[in-house]
Design a binder for these strands. Structure first.
Lengths: 260, 260
DNA sequence: TCATTTTTTGACCACTTGTCAAAATAAATA
DNA sequence: TATTTATTTTGACAAGTGGTCAAAAAATGA
């Protein structure tokens, strides 16, 4: 008996991970309908009953996945908020975290979006629902914290009509809405948005400018700032990303051959 | 034979309307899963085959509904864009149209959002997909038009990094994302957003301010402007809304009794 | 070795979307 | 009007969901 878990318990945990892994793929490939308990059981060579011993319904699986996703996001946000710099630079760091999260875990973003339409939360257990709400609250709490600091430092003034919470909500709306539209409107290029990510970043910065958050974006060298953040806060993630990029380039043959 | 349609053809058209009406209710009540072909057939006392003669699949019904919705929205946008005033005031009119659309047809907004997650577009017919894309393009074209006019009039300057299209996308993201989050996060009040509509409006205005669109929002009396727009452009809709409000108030007993 | 507990199974239920030959109805023609 | 032709409607049927639960299998303890 190694560790605190019995062999059986470890087996069960491993199986649960396998279920989630498989389910993630299914959802990402064919959306919510692609997720089938029957097919999970078949693929894992267990009976359906066993799968239902792990998750009492489809929705529970989705909630488990979204909780994983939000915890990953939260971790990136935490590190971003801890970036040492002026308040607006720290907010840029959170923006960079969003960017990175999307590029590192596109599937997670997909799942975060999927949870919102179908009436999943109602069917899922209280426990999982609360976990999700806590994650959500933590994320927005981090953003709010940075905005509060900006106000405290005198970099930002907000009146009664426009609260810290409203600005938080605005940034959230732009990023969430932007990604959601981009994912579901493939014809965005025709509409003049070839690169939604840049558009989202620009819009966030204009919103912050419009709120009077100093230094304004034209007073900052945003590109070098993002570079610094990537080096100082997200070095491992950026490395991972560039590795993936290289691998993908080699696979598709898009990268230049070495021996020419 | 009255008109250009035979009796049979009129019957069919009426039935189609009934199907859509029923389907709308189902979707709004229980989400995408609430929509059941079996139950439609049962409720309308037709066989399933007859329903399938109108719509070859579930997704076609949803697409038909979303097309209805977007045409209604487009109509409001058209009238808003035709508002006589400075460019920024016209943009406020479109904002008011969004507001009104949401309050008049909350079900339509729900359906507009539902279409985006599940892989519906792929299953629907080319025809309906194109119709949707055209509606979408028309809406964003109207917004773009107002922004172009602003640039032409010298009220707004955009550099190479931030295009007219990006700003359009930004407003779209805020409104779509905001409503989407509000609809799926009932705990928003706990997060400090008791009134998402106002938050969305404020964020849109801050974004426009941040883009430098003159006159800036603090140079305008937005409340009286909105009042004017409601009177001059959307009088019938506002009347309808206040009627509905009164009826609802009487029904719940919230309105004061007449004879006291 | 045998008894008890835990885990796993898969037949089963109620429900879904979607199909299609056959029945019912309407329209056209003699 | 009587008969043939075209159209519309039907509901049994197939294939697939999510979810349940008594019974079988495996693991555990005495």
């Amino acid at each position: 008996m190694s560790g605190t878990l019995t062999r059986k318990q470890r087996e069960i945990k491993e199986r649960e991970a396998k279920i989630l892994e498989l389910a993630r793929g299914m959802i990402v490939q064919d959306g919510y309908h692609g997720l089938s308990m029957d097919r999970i059981a078949e693929a894992l060579e267990y009976s359906k009953g066993t799968i239902y011993q792990h998750f009492s319904c489809k929705e529970e699986i989705l909630m488990a996945l979204v909780n994983q996703a939000m915890e990953r996001r939260l971790e990136l946000f935490r590190r971003a908020a801890a970036f040492r710099g002026r308040s607006r630079e720290r907010m840029s760091a959170i923006g960079a975290a969003c960017d990175l999260f999307f590029r590192l875990y596109p599937d997670d973003v997909h799942i975060e979006h999927a949870i919102r339409i179908t009436s999943i939360k109602e069917k899922a257990s209280e426990q999982r629902r609360l976990c999700l709400e806590r994650c959500e609250a933590s994320c927005s709490e981090l953003v709010r914290g940075v905005i509060y600091d900006a106000v405290a430092a005198g970099d930002l003034e907000l009146d009664d009509d426009f609260s810290v919470e409203q600005l938080t909500f605005g940034l959230w709306s732009i990023t969430f809405g932007g990604h959601s539209i981009a994912a579901s409107s493939p014809s965005l290029t025709n509409l003049g948005i070839p690169d939604p990510m840049t558009a989202i970043r620009n819009n966030c910065n204009r919103l912050l400018d419009g709120s009077g958050w100093k230094p304004l974006s034209h007073e900052l060298d945003l590109d070098t700032l993002i570079g610094r953040i990537q080096r100082e806060v997200f070095a491992p993630e950026v490395a991972q990303l560039s590795q993936q990029g290289q691998a993908a380039a080699q696979e598709t043959g898009a990268g230049r051959a070495r021996r020419d």
